[in-house]
Design a binder for these strands. Sequence first.
DNA 1: TGACAGGGGGTGT
DNA 2: ACACCCCCTGTC
Length: 290
Amino acid sequence: MEDFGPWVHIPCVPPFSHAGLRETIDGGQMFRWQAVDVSCWQGIWDRFAARVRIAEGGAIEAAFPDGTAEEALPALLRLLGLDQDYVGAYDSLPWRSDRVLRSAMMQFGGLRVVNQPLGEALLGFICSSTKRIPQIKECMGLLAERFGSPVAGGQALPTWPQLAAVDEADLRGCKLGYRARYVWQTAQFLAGDPGYLTAVEAMPYEGAHAALTRLPGVGAKVADCVLLYGTRSLQPFPVDTWIIQAMAHLYGLHGWPVDHVAQFGRTHFGEFSGLAQQFLFAYARRAGGA
DNA sequence: TGACAGGGGGTGT
DNA sequence: ACACCCCCTGTC
């Protein structure tokens, strides 16, 4: 095992509640973090690794593999959205008129929407369809172990160029099931157009969503997840079965088509609808909306 | 205990 | 509408 350096104190405003930090790190936005104990997680993203735990007053503390903190700390702040204005984002949500949202925001105080490398979010969410979080994590772990590069603290996830050199059969060996073909086809697509994801990052929402949907295995829901968790935008509003249930129950949208619910979410919650989605998702998943 | 449906944070046809 | 691959859960 790797040696980690000293804990670094990171003030956070708005402050994290325990539930808010757990939902941020280990609630299904990312798939490469494991609980060390009830209030400490260890994870890998990009070429970095870290341990994160909750501290007094809603701050957090982080530790990094020896010699990596100088680069990894700013990367962690970016990953967890700690260099963004969440006070303004929280305040702009319609919590004054929406008691459901207000309740979720109190229950999951401090919740952030993460900013992973776009390619990692793409891989994770292509593999997410009809899978539970523990299964997705297992697949990501196998992919990293077998096809990724070593970094201080563990194995990085393979990049898309690395994935393009892997046989579909070997991807299946990572328990991807039918998703192995999607990953393989997308890897080939991106190998033939290396600037594609970089271009997507520079596009406004509509164009970026359309461009991602062109990739095999990427439908509307996965594209929204990739954009929400893989860029700094808080605009995308991913609609999965949990959100369908929650929005039907809480806002009376019974029987609405998925794309209409997504449209409703973006207009009802505004510029930061993705943050609202994350609160409602956490709320519904914890059966708090029933 | 052990086998067997049923179905899951979706996509593509 | 249904299959898709894998694997977990709930039943008998």
